[in-house]
Design a protein around this nucleic acid. Sequence first.
DNA 1: ACAATAGTGTCTCTCAGACAGTATCGT
DNA 2: ACGATACTGTCTGAGAGACACTATTGT
Lengths: 223, 223
Amino acid sequence: MAFGVTVDLVVFTIRDDRLCALFVRRGIPPHRDRWALPGGFVLEEEGLLDAARRELADETGLDDLPIHLEQLATYGDPGRDPRMRVVSVAYLAFGPELPEPEAGTDAAEARWRPVDEMAPHPDQLAFDHAQILSDGLERARAKLEYSPLATAFCAEEFTVAELRHVYEVVWGIELDPRNFHRKVTGSPGFLVPTDRRTTRNGGRPALLYRRGDATVLNPPIAR
Amino acid sequence: MAFGVTVDLVVFTIRDDRLCALFVRRGIPPHRDRWALPGGFVLEEEGLLDAARRELADETGLDDLPIHLEQLATYGDPGRDPRMRVVSVAYLAFGPELPEPEAGTDAAEARWRPVDEMAPHPDQLAFDHAQILSDGLERARAKLEYSPLATAFCAEEFTVAELRHVYEVVWGIELDPRNFHRKVTGSPGFLVPTDRRTTRNGGRPALLYRRGDATVLNPPIAR
DNA sequence: ACAATAGTGTCTCTCAGACAGTATCGT
DNA sequence: ACGATACTGTCTGAGAGACACTATTGT
């Protein structure tokens, strides 16, 4: 009845118009040289969320990232780790375009990889991490609809077009810019307009917004 | 780095027009004589879901219940159990009107209690079980909207009115019987009509339905 | 006959999607 | 001037809510 407890992280970001997740190449057995989700053991006096935060800071090399972290699910099949009985609490993280990660202590290599390159090849991933990735992806896609989660992929201040880009990349579809604009600006508490504009995407200057304090979108953003 | 791992269960059913959950009164310290969610330690070679099923069968005294079980969340704050470091994986269960439970092995008493009696008094519950109950309630209410979960509260065959009653009890509001009827019978894959009718609720005989194979309701049932 | 519940039809209002049209920048 | 993007207005069709109306039972 003594279990090891780990946290594993599905860290999503958007790079070059693609949804990417953070992976490490394992430097030690088991599954040596295969890709895995970043993670590690929970310490004796450490909460689960604290452990997730610590691992995230470790792997990205940055300390105070503007990152949304939430619990995804827990995986504990006997035999999922051949060394011992391990229960893994998976966390889901979202951030704006993040820097290339530093290689961690026991990882040979850490890199952003597009999820549409990894998800179709579950056998390239260590342990049950393909399942965790798949669950994380499904959760992320669903939460875009009814929560302001998409703003977690954006910088502090962002335009409506940048927000729309998040939806388009994560869902893999195109959205009508005009209807999208009406929908998100009309959703109470979703977006707070600033008094600044930007032309960084070309064309007419676009108003910059910040995330509002809404936790749920009503009505949802239809897919 | 050796953790105890338990499963805790939030088991919902509907009794006497009220949403009830299963509680046990603790017969041993800590939190002796307080109410707790049923649960127990995961065994050495046992999967998490298997452990939840086993505990559920234990506590209800029945073996092959028509019960929906899904993982809720995992709770692992240091100090949540004063005896040792314990990580608890909570599961959410739903069943039709279930029999009064047998007292389990190490529980002094097991009973159905209406959640609106328990939720407002978090201090009457052991450990962090008030939080778990609250999370389970929120999840259940949300899932009624967009999943066929409500059918898990009904018997194998049920009427539209019985299904509506589930929504009304869990959400604590009244719904228009006519619009509800149109909505659920028009939701593809939600309900499969049988060729039988019942008058058990009085009035004109109502057609009996079974759950369909839909896993998601589109459009959702509005609250 | 009457009460009670099941189920259908209809109206109205709102909202989502399609898309025309206008505004304001860089080049 | 022209291309590009931002934003607004308008039309239409689908669906939600309100509620009248009909159907079929038990008493």
